[in-house]
């Protein structure tokens, strides 16, 4: 079950990411990014992070991507054209990204024995749910960072309103 979920949604996530890379039109990229985020939500669920799976669907695929699609449609963004700047990125960027991937995979695969295996649903049993455990830590040990986050959101709201306002 775990293996099937990992293979299906891992391949779906990678396919969505590659489609994001190849598509010229921003709206196609945005929709393939939604595919990646939904697949990641299923992977979170299979790793025992039910709260994060729900938050991923609601916050990322729901709120953030709708904001992206709104802005793309508002600005009437058409197909992008390739220029000389992106040719340099082709020459230097793809080997760099491949080098990052090779380095990270080498480290992870060489430490494969120490990392262990994933079990469906994690260590939780029926008595303690993931959400109650998260809320215990979040509202007891990490209350101050959580409250500071609300100030961050407030500043972001004000900043967005001020920046997007039409100048008089």
């Amino acid at each position: 079950m775990q293996l099937a979920l990992f293979l299906i949604f891992g391949v779906l996530a990678v396919a969505g990411a590659i489609n994001l890379l190849l598509q010229r039109h921003p709206i196609n990229s945005a929709l393939s990014l939604v595919v990646v985020m939904m697949s990641l939500a299923v992977l979170y669920f299979s790793l025992g992070a039910e709260f994060l799976a729900a938050a991923q669907v609601i916050v990322y695929s729901g709120a953030i991507m709708v904001l992206f699609v709104f802005v793309i449609m508002l600005l009437n963004a058409g197909e992008e054209e390739r220029t000389t700047g992106s040719k340099a990125a082709y020459i230097a960027g793809f080997p760099g990204a491949a080098a990052i991937f090779c380095l990270l995979s080498f480290v992870f695969l060489s430490e494969r024995g120490n990392l262990g295996f994933a079990h469906l649903g994690g260590h939780l049993n029926a008595a303690v749910s993931n959400i109650s455990e998260i809320s215990t830590v979040l509202f007891r040990d990490l209350l101050l960072p959580f409250e500071v986050t609300s100030i961050l959101i407030l500043v972001a709201i004000l900043g967005a309103v001020v920046l997007a306002r039409k100048e008089q």
């Binding site: 990411a17 994001l20 992977l43 992206f68 793309i72 992106s86 990204a97 695969l109």
Partner: peptide, 30 residues
């Protein structure tokens, strides 16, 4: 069973594709 390293390699692959897309995309929204 799925090793944890499988998830980490998947994350590394997604991250590298993100780096590549960041470099070759010319549209600021992309």
């Amino acid at each position: 069973a799925v090793p944890i390293a499988g998830y980490l390699v998947l994350a590394a692959l997604l991250f590298s594709i993100g780096v590549g897309a960041f470099l070759i995309k010319r549209n600021i929204i992309s």
